[in-house]
Design a protein around this nucleic acid. Structure first.
Lengths: 126, 126
DNA sequence: AATCCGTATGCTTGCCAAGGAATATGAATC
DNA sequence: GATTCATATTCCTTGGCAAGCATACGGATT
């Protein structure tokens, strides 16, 4: 049952926040740290958890690792992510995260534009 | 976050099967045993788990205890149950359960009709 | 009151996940 | 080649849940 694997990923607060942010587009790990305000280990471990279970994909560009939702999600995953989006819309925590993401956006424009060669020497979003 | 409580309930195979069956209407514990083919303890414990977290409600009629989905589910719960239904549609295990439920239906018509006084002296569905 | 039936609860064992501290990796810069 | 930066992994402790066995409970029947 793939469904269970999905629900296991969804039953943690931190992972829900990660997925909610990812729904806006690809994001680099340091952005997650800035947006969620959680320690690096925590973020990295949960991303690893999601990665092992194919709920996210990642790509390395130099020092930076950019995470994104799967390009070809299963029917079940697509349905549940949509449902999550629906539920997140009215949630204070999720909305706050998205607000912080927006503030950071200028610093990570290169990610959104898919131009890793424009990445700055040092992270400027924290 | 109520959402997490919901997902915690959904990340177990047995509980998913219980909820899938309940989506068809109220069901008594002995029916679950017959439909899922799982031991009584297992069924009862998972129903208890769901009950504590308000994903199901129950009502006692003599020896029998009839379980049902909440009469007034939250927005989040409603959305996720609908999503589950959507995902379950094409799943072999879920479909098999519903087929077994249909076979048993005559023996538990009194539940569906809301007529506990017509319950038989002994359970006839196992 | 003794018994039977359907259902629930304690108890134990084993596993897995979360969190944090320290450390490792891989890539870039000096 | 040594250092710096972003990210990942390891080790450890703690807590919670699944499963099964035995037993308790509540209601009906005799």
């Amino acid at each position: 049952m793939d469904l269970i694997k999905i629900y296991e990923c969804l039953c943690d607060r931190t992972r829900l926040r990660l997925l909610n942010v990812l729904a806006q587009g690809p994001v680099c790990v340091c952005h997650f740290q800035a947006v969620l305000g959680e320690p690096q280990v925590k973020i990295s471990k949960h991303l690893g958890y999601l990665r092992e279970r194919s709920l996210v994909e990642c790509e390395r560009h130099g020092n930076w690792v950019v995470y994104a939702l799967p390009t070809k999600p299963s029917r079940e995953l697509k349905a549940n992510l949509a449902c999550l989006q629906d539920c997140a819309r009215e949630n204070a925590v999720f909305k706050r995260d998205l607000a912080r993401l927006k503030k950071i956006e200028p610093a990570c424009a290169w990610v959104r534009a898919g131009e890793p060669e424009k990445a700055p020497g040092q992270c400027r979003c924290r």
